[in-house]
């Protein structure tokens, strides 16, 4: 969905050595694997909401990948900033949570104790909290449920 199609070559993978043109400002890749990204996903949405929405609206204007490079760089910079902050403030709890996710097939329900510690740390240090959109009203969100059936 989010990535373009990988080139399919019978002989191997297409490696392009050339870099971006000079006039395009350089921005590093986020460079996290899927487990840390999944772990920080809700905080990323809370911290970088404006940039992400800008980017998505821009993508809606045109499907051309060249059209939204500027907005995309802003999203990436915001993500990098958040990752740096998490590393500085909640490195230990974050690492514990994503390592647990890695060990449990990335099922969030398997890592609730670690997640609780991580969420608490992020809330006290950075003021970000996890909230799942469109959760049923009148009951706690699934990550705050006291006695879950699946764990």
């Amino acid at each position: 969905m989010t990535t373009h199609r990988e080139g399919i070559f019978i002989k191997g993978l297409w490696v392009e050595k050339g870099s971006m043109p000079e006039e395009v400002p350089a921005v590093p890749e986020v460079g996290c694997t899927s487990a840390p990204l999944l772990s920080m996903s809700y905080f990323f949405s809370a911290a970088c909401k404006d940039y992400s929405e800008d980017f998505v609206l821009c993508k809606k204007e045109s499907g051309d990948p060249r059209h939204c490079l500027k907005e995309g760089r802003r999203v990436t910079r915001c993500a990098l900033d958040l990752i740096a902050k998490l590393k500085a403030n909640c490195d230990e709890t974050w690492t514990k949570h994503w390592e647990c996710l890695d060990a449990n097939n990335q099922r969030l329900q398997k890592c609730r104790p670690q997640e609780r510690a991580f969420n608490e740390c992020v809330f006290t240090k950075l003021g970000l909290s996890k909230s799942i959109p469109d959760s049923p009203e009148g009951q706690p969100q699934i990550h705050l449920k006291e006695n879950p059936i699946f764990k």
């Binding site: 989010t2 992400s52 980017f55 995309g72």
Partner: peptide, 8 residues
């Protein structure tokens, strides 16, 4: 939530 970042 991660989609914009990956898409960028």
């Amino acid at each position: 939530h991660l989609a914009p970042m990956l898409q960028a």
